[in-house]
Amino acid sequence: MTNHNGTILTVNDLKTYFQTEDGIVKAVDGISFQLQKGETLGIVGESGSGKSVTNLSVMRLIPEPPGKIVNGDIIFDGIDVRELAIDEVRKIRGKRMAMIFQDPMTSLNPFLRISSQLMEVTRLHLGHNKKQAYDHAIKMLKTVGISDAEERIDSYPHEFSGGMRQRVMIAMALSCDPELLIADEPTTALDVTIQAQILELIKDLKARMGTSVILITHDLGVVAGMTEKIIVMYAGKVFEQAPTRELFATPANPYTKGLLKSVPDPAHEQGKELYQIPGLPPDVAHLPPGCPFAERCGYVQEICRTEYPPFIQINEDHHSLCHFAREVYAESVQERQAK
């Protein structure tokens, strides 16, 4: 937890719903968090838990219809993003907050040269002329580790490998030196060897440029070494929120415990089956009245199926959405001490 000199992003009770034929899908249902300047926040969860929708909401990129932000505040550096006219949002997008997407294969426009895709950002936001934008684009490509930038800048995306494309995406996102970078599963579509490189790159650039980062992933291994605090999402809700170290050491939510147990361990005993959380995430269009995780939970009690769980505060920075959060936490602490 380094240079805390103010809050860059506050999300308060955000609700983003989608109207579908199947009914209203509450993709994000009451999410709150704060991001300090220079801090890295990890958002972890399974597919469909609402991680991406949360961040698309912050960027006001939810396709409307069918989606709609129905409640909550998104305060970016004192600006209420939800209240802004879309033209004003566009002045922030790409300039002050930028986004890297999951699949670099499809996130770059296959019909346009890299140069033109890089240049349009700085020409738009920094008022660069052609020459300035071109030079800046080369500089950015070099920054993200593409050493032969001069030769490659006029290539098309399909002439790059997956890792290189993600580098280009990062260069694009960082061209205007944004205050907030949202990385939506930046390594999921990449080779394992490339994953580490890209994460190192983000970490390194973050340290150099002082950008605040939201890192979305379903891979706990990714957030472990990268983030200061973590939000665990499930079925559109925050299940647990804690500083990274504490979350890994003493989780206070059965779901988090399940996730941690399912991470493959190199010291894993051979022949022993790898743990996985039983069942599937619930259909967010038809949530049961009680805890959405009840059906899959090893700690489940009668109350879990009938009553929605409370968001219990364990200590100053640690919260968990569970009827038995304190008990689960106590168990984790015990396990920790036993080791």
Partner: peptide
């Protein structure tokens, strides 16, 4: 979506 995220 990327193009929109750029603020175009």
């Amino acid at each position: 979506r990327t193009a929109r995220a750029k603020g175009l």
